[in-house]
């Protein structure tokens, strides 16, 4: 009985922790070991990272998409493109934003997938020209996101 209680407590603890994300490294990128995330960088410095966070408060994709879009627009990002995609585990929504970094225009991707008690978050960014070169690879990788 004691063993059962310990197993149950361990299961609860595991459930409370955010799961580890998984995703294919975008073509042309090198993967880097990172804590609790999957990180990859292209030779030109375009970055791609997938993290996972608890779905708290528990909400659906539509809610988080609207909250994210409103926050980014209110913060001053210029919406470049909005798209939807199918990941390994569920459907997701992605936004690509334009913002200045020094004298350059950068594209910044924020994408989310909601899976039960977790939200998978993909971010990618790079100078406009370099990001555009890797955009298809980044979107293809997003379709492999999972837990």
């Amino acid at each position: 009985m004691k063993q059962l209680a310990i197993s149950f407590a361990a299961a609860l603890l595991l459930g409370a922790c955010a799961a580890t994300p998984s995703v294919n490294t975008p073509e042309g990128f090198a993967g880097f070991p990172a804590d609790e995330s999957v990180l990859a960088v292209s030779p030109e410095g375009v970055g791609f990272e997938v993290t996972v966070t608890p779905n708290e408060p528990v909400q659906d994709l539509e809610f988080w998409t609207e909250a994210l879009e409103r926050h980014m627009i209110d913060s001053g990002y210029l919406l470049y493109e909005r798209s939807s995609f199918e990941s390994r585990v569920a459907g997701g929504n992605a936004f690509e934003w334009l913002a200045p970094v020094g004298e350059e225009d950068w594209l910044y991707l924020t994408a989310i997938v909601v899976v039960d008690d977790s939200v998978l978050i993909a971010e990618a960014a790079g100078p406009y020209e370099f990001y555009r070169q890797h955009r298809d690879a980044i979107h293809a990788a997003m379709e492999t996101m999972g837990l």
Binding site: E49, E56, A67, L68, H71, S75, G76, Y77, V101
Partner: peptide
């Protein structure tokens, strides 16, 4: 030369973490 987006606080913690400039710092 438009202005740099600001870090506005959101009611939701993980959304606060999403920022191009923070992402660049992390990279």
């Amino acid at each position: 030369s438009r202005s740099v987006p600001a870090d506005l606080p959101s009611s939701f913690g993980w959304i606060n973490g999403l920022s191009l400039y923070r992402f660049i710092d992390r990279l």
